[in-house]
Design a protein around this nucleic acid. Sequence first.
DNA 1: TTCAAATTTTTTGTCATACCAAAGAGAGTC
DNA 2: GACTCTCTTTGGTATGACAAAAAATTTGAA
Lengths: 240, 240
Amino acid sequence: MTKVSNVKSTRASDVLVEYFEQRILDGSLPAGATLPAEREIVQEHGVSRTVVREAVLALANKGLIKAQPRFRPVVVKPGYDTALDVVGSVVSQLLRDSSGVRNLFDMRIMMEVNLVRHAALNASGEDIAKLEEALAANGAAIEDSVRFYETDIGFHKVLYEIPKNPILPAIHAAYTDWLSVHWRQMPRMPSRNQVNFEAHTRIFDAILRRQPDQAEAALREHLKFAWDQVSEELDGQDGR
Amino acid sequence: MTKVSNVKSTRASDVLVEYFEQRILDGSLPAGATLPAEREIVQEHGVSRTVVREAVLALANKGLIKAQPRFRPVVVKPGYDTALDVVGSVVSQLLRDSSGVRNLFDMRIMMEVNLVRHAALNASGEDIAKLEEALAANGAAIEDSVRFYETDIGFHKVLYEIPKNPILPAIHAAYTDWLSVHWRQMPRMPSRNQVNFEAHTRIFDAILRRQPDQAEAALREHLKFAWDQVSEELDGQDGR
DNA sequence: TTCAAATTTTTTGTCATACCAAAGAGAGTC
DNA sequence: GACTCTCTTTGGTATGACAAAAAATTTGAA
């Protein structure tokens, strides 16, 4: 499935890519190690520098190495953020029509429903404290729409951190990045901020009281409210 | 965030990549269209062919175009599967240590918990029928471990299809692909198959009876059982 | 006229070479 | 020892060349 079905993609650079990918994966090129100089690879593998360059570039695009302009390529320490980073372009294209945005937003709802339920059932005292802090910061920013936007993200971010799974914060960052375009177009004013803040408060309350169903309901209502506003903007520019 | 923060990566190919990425995104290069010949791009943009090639290759690696070895590059119709395809390499590296596998598996649990709850609350008659069919196929394959593996995947796949969000089946495919390595190492025998089939049955029953909490509990137990087996294998080869 | 085979022209993949610019190393000077 | 200046290394780009494959064109036969 992942294998690109290269039945006959006899690109010389591909075998180089595969070679280094192999070595990175099996650990003989650990994170932080540098690849040989291009001219060394040329001699060692008997290919032209063109091929080497293409291979290096491909590895860099795959997110396996980091090729700074005038330095040797360095094997990158993989993070869950880099994983979501390399898909950026494709995602952008998927978000071109409104149904793509809708699908992604639905995914977010699904995800956060789970997060608030999890929080209501398992949040530690420390988690609650962080959540409360984020909520307070959000409440203090109602009059300042820019800061409200930031603290809004911050509040949700805490939810993603509670399960202690490093994949989740990366997903959160990806969501906010990918959807930020539509987010910014959303009308922002203190009255709406007030509504959103109250929704946050209800979610927090439900988590505090250990009521997963209420937390889920509050979250769903909250995100539905947000979606309705994004949706208006979308329909204006894209009728599909 | 997505922008690779190259403050000064004055790579000439980058501006070309950006140019074509722009044109693909704004639709002036629709899916299926072919890029101009390399030499045309050379003349039009006043850069060397080296740069053009690097740009084309980069676009191909990003999954925006499909560059078959000796054919004109074609703008690709993006699917949610291609999005998850380009991350393959990074994910492989993330799964090198057991904690990476654990994190991904936890994500899967989280996801499927949501799916079974959703199914219990919203599954249509048609959905139920498909689920029942998949369950029956699974039950008929208990003696044949290979077929059981396939029908096992098939049963879970139906769960991902119920919400009608095209992102979900893509995620399911990615999960099974990425985790298949560890899955195959799992000991397979009719007795274990029997346990798994009964778990599937319990999940199905709970969905049928519209009991989200029971469905969630059954799923959690099911996946915990699966994880314990994978975990044993992992600990054997990787102590981290 | 129409369809298929053969031929010419493009076009991509690869190679070789050269030059530039910047970073780093080393020598020389104070 | 600190500073400056050169030299080497190394990646980024340009250019030209050639083979092989694809695309376009011509040719040939029915």
